[in-house]
Design a protein around this nucleic acid. Structure first.
Lengths: 206, 206
DNA sequence: AATATTGGAGAGTACAACTATCCAATCATG
DNA sequence: CATGATTGGATAGTTGTACTCTCCAATATT
C-alpha cells in the first residue's frame, strides 16, 4: 500500500501522514525505490492509534510520540515504563516545592489510602497539582471524598491489573494504552452518572 | 487593590491579568477614575479559579470562559446548565453520525447501565468518541469493563450529589466546578492505583 | 512639580499542528 | 516508450492560542 492509499484508508490528508512520519509518530514504510515506499496494516493501525491519542485522549503530538516510543521499546521494568508513560500524559503536575516534602497533599492522601508513595512517580505531582487547584479554586477536597475517590480508583485498578496479559510486551501495551485510552471513557461515564443522578434527584424540567 | 497588587497577589504578570480582563474571564474592577480601578478578594479568587481551570483541568481560555459564564449566570434549570457546562469541557465528542441512532455505542452502554440516555447531552458524544477511539486503537472496551467503570462512576456521582448544597446558585457552582476540578484528581488517583497495584503484583525491581 | 503607575487598546511573539508547494525520480498506461 | 500522475523528502506557509510588549494620555504619589 502506498502513502496515498494509507492516508485514504485512515481518512487523513497525505500531508498529515507525512507530518506524522516526520515527527516520528509513524514508522517509515519499507522503501521499494528512491521515491516509493510501501505501508501495511501495521501502519494503518498505528495511524488509528495516533488519532485516538491526539483526539479523544487529548495528547499533543509530542506526548503521543513519548507514549508510543514507550510502547515500541519498553524498558525491562514495567513499573518504570508505566511511570515514564504517565509522565508523558497531561496534565503536567506541580513542580517539586520543598526538597524535604515536595508533595505534601499527595503524600498525605496516599498514606491515608494505604498506598505506596513514590515522589518520583509523575502522577504524584499531578495529584498534588490537582489538589492544589481545587484548594485554590475554593473547592477543597475533603479527606472523606478523597478516600472515596481513592478506593474507587483502587477497585478499578485491581480489575484492570487482573486482566493484564502475561507476556511482558503485551503487558506494557495493555497498561500504557489502557491508562491513556480508558481515561476519557471514565470521565464521560462520570459526567453521565452526574447527569443521571441529577435527573433522578431533581426530576427533569423540560 | 489596584491591578498590580492583584497581579502580584495571584503571582501573575500584569499583562496576563489585563489579557484575562479583555477575554472576559475576569470582571472589571470598580473604576475609581478614568485611569484607575480597584479590585477585591472576589477578583483574586476568580483569578485563582481561572488558573486552576486553565492549568490542571486543562481548559483553553475559551472553554474556561464558557464554564465561568455558566457559573456566573446559570439558567433556571440545573440539568441544562450542567449539560452546557459539560459541553464546554474537553474532549470534544464525536459529531452525530446517522440521524436515527447517532451514538450507538454510548446508547448501548447507558442502557446496559440502566441510565437515562439523552443524545443532547454533550457527555454522550464524548463517551461515543472515547469508545470509538478505544476500538480504533485496537483496545476495545468489553461490556463487562464498561459495567465496572459505569457502576464506579455511579457510586461517585451519588456520593457527590448527596453533598450538593441546597441553594440553587451554590448547587450550580458545586456541580459545574466539582465536575471540572475533581476530574484531574480522579485521574491521578487512578494512575496511582495502577502503580500501586503493579508494585504489589509484580514487586518492584529497582 | 516631578516621577511613577494605571487602564485600555493594538501590535508583536512563540509555539503547535497542520497544510501547501516544489522537485526530481519513479510508476502506470496507452 | 512517451507522457502524465504519484511519490518521498524538504521547505515554507497558514491558522489558532496564549500570552507579552509597547504606547499613551490621564491620574497618583512624593
Amino acid at each position: 500500500m502506498r502513502i496515498s492509499a494509507l492516508a485514504a484508508e485512515a481518512g487523513l490528508p497525505v500531508a498529515t501522514v507525512k507530518y506524522y512520519l516526520r515527527e516520528g509518530l509513524l514508522q517509515p514504510g519499507t522503501a521499494t525505490s528512491a521515491t516509493q515506499a510501501s505501508y501495511d496494516e501495521h501502519h494503518l493501525r498505528r495511524l488509528r492509534l495516533v488519532r485516538a491519542l491526539t483526539g479523544p485522549v487529548g495528547l499533543s503530538v509530542q506526548q503521543a510520540r513519548s507514549v508510543l516510543q514507550l510502547v515500541d521499546e519498553p524498558g525491562d521494568d514495567l513499573y518504570s515504563t508505566l511511570g515514564r508513560a504517565v509522565g508523558a500524559l497531561p496534565p503536567d503536575g506541580a513542580e517539586p516545592a520543598g526538597a524535604d516534602d515536595p508533595y505534601p497533599r499527595a503524600r498525605a492522601a496516599l498514606e491515608a489510602l494505604g498506598q505506596v508513595y513514590d515522589p518520583e512517580f509523575a502522577a504524584v505531582a499531578q495529584l498534588e497539582g490537582a489538589l492544589a487547584a481545587a484548594d485554590d479554586a475554593g473547592m477543597p477536597i475533603t479527606p472523606e471524598r478523597l478516600a472515596r475517590y481513592g478506593s474507587a480508583a483502587a477497585d478499578l485498578a485491581a480489575y484492570d491489573l487482573e486482566r493484564m496479559p502475561p507476556e511482558p510486551h503485551a503487558a506494557v501495551e495493555y497498561t500504557v494504552l489502557g491508562t491513556a485510552l480508558y481515561e476519557p471513557v471514565l470521565l464521560a461515564l462520570r459526567r453521565l452518572a452526574h447527569q443521571d443522578a441529577a435527573v433522578r434527584r431533581l426530576g427533569r424540567e423540560a
